[in-house]
Every structure is written in structure tokens, then in C-alpha cells.
Write a protein that binds this DNA or RNA. Sequence first.
RNA 1: GGCGGGAUAGCUCAGUUGGUAGAGCAGAGGCCUGAAAAGCCUUGUGUCCCCAGUUCAAGUCUGGGUCUUGCCA
Length: 310
Amino acid sequence: MKPVIIIQGPTAVGKSSLALELAQKFSLDIISADSRQVYKYMDLATAKPSKEELSLVKHHLIDIITPDEAYNAGRFTRETTKIVDHSEIKNPIICGGTGFYISAFLEGLCHIPDIAQEIRDSLTQDWDNLGNEMMYNKLKEIDPYISQKVSNNDKQRIIRALEVFYGTQKRLSSYWEEQGLLHPRKVLNILLLDDREDIYHRINKRYDQMVLSGLLDEIRNLLDMGYKVDSPGLTAVGYKELLPYILHNQNLADCINLAKQHSRNYAKRQITWYKRNKFNLVFFRKSINYSTIDIFLKNFINNDGKIGDY
RNA sequence: GGCGGGAUAGCUCAGUUGGUAGAGCAGAGGCCUGAAAAGCCUUGUGUCCCCAGUUCAAGUCUGGGUCUUGCCA
């Protein structure tokens, strides 16, 4: 198990540029842990690194699928494991804001076979027709343990538990029980934070900049290429909010404000998520100590992942 | 100028036949085992525009005023 450097943090905190700098200095690859940067043709509002930046350092898991394709934590885990353990370049930097993906990679997911999309589609239909109570009661019968852990209104998790059962004839909870311990991987897990107001401010400013840089044309282009408004890619924050303007001529300023608001909500959820995780280094953006990071990184790389005394 | 809507939580609005108010969104906090930029949970004391009146009791009725908005001139 190869040691791995990880950089996490809420959106617009400056993860990518830190990763780029370190990757260049120590000649490392970067693996993007971002559920939206995987999509081709979606560059601006996913805050994807620029062409120039991408040419400076080898990036993985960016531009790997089209916007009509779904991506998920299982795929990320498989693909990242493959890259990390087979890459010739040692100790890649995993950098991104999708904390669930990184946790899944580090802690492992239970081994559930892929479930046919039709099962989920039909359960989603049932949900819309029968209502949440009926579906929740179904789950209570099938998998009481999961039903206790899930709100009776949590459409996604109820459907997931049901689709696992209908697709594999086995309860989701029994997959959970089977889940073995993963060999712990050595990590240098870095969290980059900032004051809430500063993050919010940067999100707002950055989105205005994205719009000025041609975000509307990027979205129009996606539609011209035939991607539907409900394509997995287009449900991304920053895209879905502008659709009403492009398609139905709704007020642009309102759409922009909503996009900013949703980005702020997202950042808040990320910050909450990080509270559950353990990190080796936590930095505030404004007081980031590059020499400390350098020392940690150098030691981490030279000692094959052992974080000793400094 | 005439006629008619509005005026209630930061914002958009509900408030049944009068019994001192409640949703969504925002904000805040939290959850998260293959949709995670997703999904979900918790959290609402506010001169109910102002003044006077009717009433045991008015956001709710009456009169006057202020502001706002639509239509007609």
C-alpha cells in the first residue's frame, strides 16, 4: 500500500493551487477527488485547473467521462486505488473537495455488486407514485436495521437500500456487516480551511468571474451537444441554476445569486463533513506555513510514509 | 386624477366564520457506507404599516392616513 498525500478543504479555499505547487516542487502526480471535474466540457463552474496548469503536472480523473454519465464513490475508489498503486510516480497527491470519495478510498466501501439502473428507475417511480411512507415501510420490512438509521423522508438512501436488496437479494445491512477492515494506508492528510465569511466572499467573486469568462456559452454548448438538463453532469452547482435563464429567460441576476447561494451551502456542508475526519496538518489559508508543509512532505516521501518527529 | 390589489420572520408569501401567528427559502447547527456539487435532520417572539373606533377579545371588522403595485384616464 503506497503512502498518499491528501489535500482537502471546502470549495474556493485554494486546494488546487497548493496541490499544484507541491506537485511541481516534489514532482508528484495529482489525482482529482472531485465528483464534477470528472466531466468533459464542464470546465468553468467546476473550477477545473486551466489547460496550462494541467500541462504542468500530470492530473488524473479529470475529463474522464461525458456529462450524461453517472459517477460515484465506488468508481472513484477503484480508479484511484489503481492509479495510486500502479503509478510509477510515488506518493501522488489526492486533492479535492468530495470528502466522501476520499473517505471511501481510505476506509473502503462494502463490496456490493453494481445494480442495474432500471431497478433504481423503477423504485424512483414507485417513490413518486406511492409516497415516502409506503417506501419507508417497505424498507422497514426488508431491512429494519437500515430503516432505523435513515429518515423516512430520505429518498436517496431508502431507494439505495431497496435497490441493493432487489438487485442482489441481500440486505444492505448484511453487506455492512461483512465489510472487513482495510489495510490502513499511510497518509499525510492536509486540511485547508478559512474563515466562513472569507470563503463565502471568495465563492461569490469567483462565480462572477466564471460568468464573465463565458460560463453561459459553456452551458449552451453542452445543450447544443445534446446533453439533457437532467444529465448527471448538469446537476452540478453553478450549472443547474443558470438553466432557467438560458431556457426560460428568467432573470439572470437571480439565477446567479442562487448559484452562489448553493455554492455557499455546499461549502458549509463540506466544513461539517471535515469535522469528523482526522488530519495530520490543518492550515488556515491566510496563515499557511509553506516551510512546515515542505518539511512534512519531504519527510513523508523520504521515509515511505512514516510521519516521525520533526 | 378614477378604480382595484397589496402592506405579516432577513426574502417570497399562508393565515379558514374575530380568540395575540405559520410555511418555503436564507441563516445557524448536525447527519452521511456506491446519486455526495447529492440526499436528509434540528432550529421561527415577529411594532402582523400607522392612528382612532366596534368588541370581553382585531393580523382578521369599520373609518381615516401613509407607502406600494396594477388597470383606466
